[in-house]
Simulated assay, not measured.
Amino acid sequence: MFRLLTTLILWVALSEASKIVIQSNPNYLLQDLTKTLTLRCSLLDTATTTTTMIGRRDAGDLTETQYDVQSVTAISVVRNSQNEPVANLTSQPSAAVPLTDLKSLKVHGSLGKNHASSPNSEHAFLEMQWDHPGQNQTGGYTCYIYAVDAQGQNIVFSTSAEIGQEFPSADDMLSHISQLEKTVDALEQRLQAVEIKLGLLKPPHAEEGMVVCEDSNNWNRDPYGNNGRYVFHNVKFQTPYDKPPMVSLGIDLLDESSDAYLRIHTDIDNLTKDGFTVRCGTWADTYIFKVRVRWVSVVA
Rank of each mutant, 00 (worst) to 15 (best):
R3Q: 02
L4E: 00
L8F: 05
L8M: 13
I9V: 06
L10A: 11
W11G: 11
A17Y: 03
A17H: 04
S18D: 04
N27Y: 08
Q31K: 10
Q31P: 00
Q31L: 03
Q31M: 01
L33P: 01
T34H: 03
C41M: 09
T48E: 15
T51R: 13
T51H: 07
R56H: 10
R56W: 03
R57S: 07
D58C: 02
T65H: 05
V72N: 12
T73A: 06
V77E: 05
V78R: 04
V78D: 01
N83G: 09
V86C: 01
V86S: 04
A87R: 09
T90D: 14
Q92L: 06
P93F: 05
S94W: 01
V107M: 05
H108M: 10
G109R: 03
L111Y: 04
K113G: 08
S118I: 09
P119N: 15
S121H: 09
E127N: 07
H132Y: 12
Q135M: 10
N136R: 12
N136C: 04
Y141Q: 08
Y141I: 11
C143L: 02
C143V: 03
Y144V: 03
V148N: 13
V148S: 07
A150C: 02
G152M: 02
Q153W: 07
I155T: 14
I155F: 05
S158T: 11
I163C: 13
I163K: 11
G164A: 04
D171M: 04
S175M: 01
S175A: 13
I177C: 00
S178Q: 11
E181H: 00
K182V: 08
K182P: 02
K182W: 09
V184L: 12
A186V: 07
L187P: 02
E188M: 05
Q189V: 09
L191D: 06
Q192G: 13
A193D: 15
I196R: 13
K197E: 12
L201T: 13
A206W: 04
E207W: 08
E208Q: 13
E214Y: 03
D215I: 08
R221P: 00
Y230D: 00
F232H: 10
H233P: 00
N234I: 08
T239L: 10
Y241G: 06
L253A: 07
L254F: 15
L254W: 09
E256A: 10
E256V: 11
S258Q: 12
A260M: 05
L262Y: 07
L262F: 07
I264D: 02
I268H: 01
T272E: 01
G275W: 01
G275A: 02
F276Q: 01
F276N: 00
T277W: 03
V278N: 01
V278L: 06
C280E: 03
G281H: 05
T282C: 05
T286E: 09
I288N: 02
V296E: 02
S297V: 01
V298K: 14
V299S: 12
V299Y: 09
A300Y: 03
